[in-house]
């Protein structure tokens, strides 16, 4: 019977395949203050950790600060309090071997660069031939080699997100962060992309942190699912997903276990959700990056 480990994890090592802890966060909190004087707490108190090669999904209700959390974790945003360390060192700016796939591909892929150049973007330090080779390899993984000279905006949404994934993978990162990457894509494409992500992650042994509001996606992809409370968010529970890999979509989603995990997480979220009203995009706060709707 699947169990949710309630509460926070601060004193424990990461569960999952035993390996060095890659990312460790404790007591992360973030508030946004607005020019007119109001203060909006986004994250209350988050603690989590990620081991090498582990696939962790973070699920939570709308508006609970998931995107803010991701941005804090990768170094784009500085949390108000708490400690955050990556590979043992404290995080100040985005570490070299961390890659991010953002939710809105049309606002993160560069429209003035071709697909190839976009994928090569993070590879500036390499020689030209090496860059090309890596880019082609990454694009082969996402099955996009036939549009390599196109511009991203000439492609469909699913293809653009695949370019974004290729861009991330080409840098051969140790940690991959994904912010609701498949939210803006249609349902069928989403399933194909999920399967692709799973296979890439396994093949490369990549530590992955996926933010999503889709519980099915979280259970299908992750080794461990972290459930967040509504804003100001904290970790409600962690659910270890004990389904063997490789996971194929049809098989897994038919398993009763899958349904149980799903139900468990769903109940956890719903139980807490009734107290909080919905939130829209908050305006860009003073001096920090604008909050986008999580």
């Amino acid at each position: 019977m699947p169990e949710a480990i309630k509460g926070r994890q601060h004193d424990r090592q990461a569960t999952g395949p035993a390996a060095a802890t890659l990312l460790e966060a404790r007591n992360i909190a973030k508030c946004f203050s607005h020019p007119n004087g109001t203060v909006t707490p986004a994250i209350g108190d988050i603690a989590l950790s990620l081991a090498k090669g582990e696939f962790v999904a973070i699920v939570g209700p709308s508006g609970c600060g998931k995107t803010t959390l991701l941005r804090c974790l990768c170094g784009l945003l500085k949390p108000d309090s708490g400690t955050l360390s990556y590979a043992g060192k404290p995080v100040s700016d985005v570490p070299e071997d961390v890659a991010v796939v953002f939710q809105e591909y049309n606002r993160s892929l560069f429209p003035w660069l071709s697909v190839r150049r976009n994928v090569e973007f993070g590879l500036n330090k390499l020689s030209k031939t090496e860059r090309r080779a890596r880019a082609e390899e990454a694009l082969t993984r996402v099955h996009l080699t036939d549009v390599i000279e196109h511009y991203p905006w000439q492609l469909s949404g699913g293809m653009q997100q695949r370019v974004a994934i290729a861009r991330a993978v080409a840098t051969q990162p140790n940690l991959l962060l994904m912010d609701e990457p498949f939210a803006s894509v249609d349902a069928q494409t989403r399933i194909r992309l999920e399967t692709m992500t799973a296979s890439i992650s396994t093949e490369l042994g990549l530590a992955t942190l996926l933010i999503t509001h889709d519980i099915d996606e979280a259970v299908f992809l992750a080794d461990r699912v972290i459930v967040l409370s509504p804003r100001p968010s904290s970790v409600l529970a962690e659910v270890v997903v004990d389904i063997p890999r490789p996971r194929t979509e049809l098989e897994v989603k038919a398993m009763p276990r899958f349904q149980e995990y799903r139900r468990l997480i769903h109940d956890l979220i719903v139980a807490k959700q009734s107290d909080t009203p919905d939130v829209v995009d908050t305006p860009a706060p003073d001096g920090t990056e604008p909050e986008r709707s999580p």
Partner: peptide, 22 residues
Amino acid sequence: RSTSPLPTVPPAERHRGRRTWF
């Protein structure tokens, strides 16, 4: 971006004075 007219959590501070000061 729609300016949200409400903070969802009872705001910590919201003085008229603070706003004028800003």
